[in-house]
Amino acid sequence: MRVLFRADASIARGSGHIMRCLTLAKALQQRGAVCDFACRVESGHLIAWLQQQGFNVISLISEPLNEEHESQLLLAALQHDYRLLIVDHYQLTATFCQLLRQRCQYVMVIDDLANRALDCELLLDQNLLPDQHLRYQGLIPAHCRTLLGPKFALLRDEFYSASATPLANHLLISFGGSDADNLTSMAINALVMLKPRGITADIVIGANNPWRAMLQRQLANLPDVQLHIQTTSMATLMRKARLMLGAGGTTHWERSICGLPGLVVTVAENQQATTAYLNKLGACVWLGQAAEMSAEFFAEQLCYYLSQPALLDEIGRRAKNLVPDNAGTPLVVEQILNVVANR
């Protein structure tokens, strides 16, 4: 089975779409699929990195005039027919999917927004919302199979096998791959304020983070803080931490399966609804939006929650209950194989 993924990464949009598609591609690859990516060349793209992972990438250079033109550009670049097209892109709608059916037999869409018409046999939205079973009414075909909620979260293999013992006063800090708002720098300044308290930390950034050199300079005098770039050990780092400070998105479900309590800053509008709901459920603490943050506020919040071990245990327990240990990526792969086999 040949599968085509259409997703992008950039400094502005981050790397989340590519990362979750890569997780799914590797899982499908293990089941015998041949997976290609089609990605636009823009500042902060991860095309070379995907190629280093062993995947063929169709680089889309020309800027499309509209969605129909986008479809034409990709169709002209394809050298194969595909059994399945997987689209993870907020700007692409039913129009794009319908036109790509010339070369792609089935279509799957990965989405978070539920704000546009989609043409697909399979829809994945791993967010947790009180109205999640109603959000796509009128937006997808009647025959579309829906995979809704963190039961279908796209988590890498490491999250099903990693183990580590949490360390007292040890933090994990990660604001996504690109961290366009440079919240990581703000968090480092908070750690400087908390240095007398003996707090240690791991900090994770992506390969396309534009602030990398600045962050390395900031950390030069913090020997108890380690910087990780495009790490493949996120699960181990999560299980090692007592508390996480970071963004929403897929990180919610990575953190949840590890039972790691989190202080969450929403860095994109599409993260707000799920983060607010998880905060209401007591499965994380929503600190607010990126523009509202400061180093002083981070320091205050970290100091308070690290002093409340019983509260952290309860937040971690509630988060852990959201993502079944035996679900996620393997379950999504089984659903895909059933659809393309007409089962």
Rank of each mutant, 00 (worst) to 15 (best):
W211F: 15
W211H: 15
G198A: 11
C21K: 06
E269L: 09
A220M: 13
T184H: 07
T95F: 00
M186E: 02
S178K: 05
A180T: 10
A247R: 08
L167P: 00
L60F: 01
N169P: 00
D81R: 13
W211C: 09
L22V: 00
P130R: 11
F37W: 11
L243Y: 05
K26F: 02
S294P: 10
L311V: 15
T329S: 08
G177K: 10
C97D: 15
S10A: 08
L118K: 12
Q137T: 13
Q126H: 11
L113F: 12
G177Y: 11
N127Y: 01
H89C: 08
Q272L: 15
L260V: 10
I188C: 13
G177A: 09
Q105H: 13
Q91D: 15
G198T: 09
D313V: 01
M1A: 14
S62I: 09
S43M: 05
K240M: 02
Y277G: 03
L99G: 00
T250L: 13
L139R: 13
L183Y: 08
D112R: 12
I110V: 14
S174W: 01
L24E: 00
L312E: 06
A190V: 08
N321F: 03
G288A: 07
C39A: 13
L260N: 10
F159S: 03
L128A: 08
A9I: 01
K151S: 05
I58Y: 15
A247M: 06
H133G: 00
D181N: 14
R116Q: 09
S256Q: 07
D111F: 03
M238H: 06
N208R: 12
T266W: 09
T95A: 12
G54H: 08
G54A: 06
C144W: 02
A327V: 07
Q230F: 09
H170D: 03
E67Q: 11
N338T: 07
M186T: 15
A77Q: 15
E158A: 11
L171M: 11
D313S: 14
V225T: 14
R101K: 15
L46V: 02
C104T: 06
G44Y: 07
F96R: 10
R212Y: 07
P150C: 06
D157N: 10
R31D: 05
I61M: 06
A235C: 09
R40S: 14
V264C: 05
I110A: 07
D224M: 12
E300C: 04
A162P: 01
L263G: 10
H69R: 03
L278H: 04
L129K: 13
L322K: 11
N66P: 07
V34Y: 06
N56Q: 14
A276L: 13
F152Q: 01
A117M: 10
L139D: 02
L302V: 12
H252M: 06
T146D: 00
Q126A: 14
E254H: 06
L245I: 14
I203W: 01
E334R: 10
N189T: 15
V339W: 03
M214G: 03
T184F: 12
F159W: 03
V107H: 03
L75Y: 09
A190N: 05
P324R: 12
P141M: 00
V340T: 14
H170M: 06
